[in-house]
Lab assay of single mutants.
Amino acid sequence: MGFKLLSKLLVYLTASIMAIASPLAFSVDSSGEYPTVSEIPVGEVRLYQIADGVWSHIATQSFDGAVYPSNGLIVRDGDELLLIDTAWGAKNTAALLAEIEKQIGLPVTRAVSTHFHDDRVGGVDVLRAAGVATYASPSTRRLAEVEGNEIPTHSLEGLSSSGDAVRFGPVELFYPGAAHSTDNLIVYVPSASVLYGGCAIYELSRTSAGNVADADLAEWPTSIERIQQHYPEAQFVIPGHGLPGGLDLLKHTTNVVKAHTNRSVVE
């Protein structure tokens, strides 16, 4: 069995187990497998329904001669939608809004960016022009300005110390501490036991640490421990890039980060 097929099978099995364990909360999309990078042309966006009122959005972007996937989250909030992270750029984010209108038909009224990198804030200006209120932590807003990236308009308070959590509509926002970046936030959907790890969490097929220019490698494993301790009931975990899975993604990420750190020390 090929690795790609095995990865998709694991996603399907995880979703099936969740649907059985929580039949009222989960209505997993039966329309197909989780979209992969090879299936999404740059400039297009796919939506994948995880649970009743919960979707991931998947886009792709060219970077350094390669094409990478990027995940975000959409959560229903009454007759409105909360968006977590842009679709990595203005063109993708405009396509995301169009796809949401086509498939869901509810307005996106608020959006949260989970850290300051372009795959999370690139497209904020498109959201703002569409009347979406954009939010991020003060740290993310400051770092985005320093980096020359787009800056969300509103500040999220109460997320300055490791372990801080605040309720934001249908989700809980959690600051686990520094990891992929010093400002990275985690998003949890309690009604569906869905954990969105953003770039602080890796997919299972990833074996290298990737972009760690703004990471705190020493603190990252401790931050992941905080996530595990705060959300032990999480059933569906979405990484910032690639295929979702279960809580095993947290341990896998820790292993990859520690291996990278150990290699760096040896070198």
Rank of each mutant, 00 (worst) to 15 (best):
T140S: 12
V54P: 01
L5V: 05
L10R: 08
F3S: 13
V257H: 08
K102P: 15
L143G: 12
E44G: 10
A129M: 09
C199S: 00
V124I: 15
S191K: 06
T182L: 06
Y135N: 06
I224S: 05
L143Q: 12
G177F: 00
P170G: 09
G89S: 10
G72P: 00
L10W: 11
A19D: 15
E33Y: 03
L5I: 12
V257D: 01
Y135V: 11
T114K: 01
W88H: 07
G2L: 13
Y231A: 06
S223T: 03
I201N: 00
I151L: 08
P221M: 07
H260V: 06
F63Q: 07
E147T: 11
R206S: 09
I50S: 13
W88F: 12
G78N: 11
S139P: 10
T14M: 15
Y34H: 14
G246D: 10
A179M: 03
I227D: 00
K251Y: 05
V194P: 00
Q103G: 09
Q228C: 02
V124A: 08
L24R: 10
D79P: 03
F168M: 09
T182E: 06
S62Q: 13
I238W: 06
M1H: 12
Q61G: 11
G72N: 05
S160Q: 13
R226A: 10
H115L: 00
S205Y: 15
H230K: 14
A94C: 09
H115A: 01
G65K: 11
E145T: 08
V124W: 13
R110W: 14
Q49E: 05
D29M: 09
E99A: 14
S113P: 04
G245F: 03
E172F: 02
D216T: 09
T36C: 04
V67E: 09
V256I: 13
L10N: 09
D118W: 06
A90K: 05
E225D: 15
N255Q: 14
P69I: 04
L250W: 12
L82F: 06
G240H: 03
Y202E: 08
L243F: 12
C199F: 00
H115F: 00
V266N: 02
L127G: 01
K8L: 14
T153E: 15
E157S: 08
Y231I: 15
Y12V: 07
G177H: 00
P152W: 13
T114Q: 00
L127A: 10
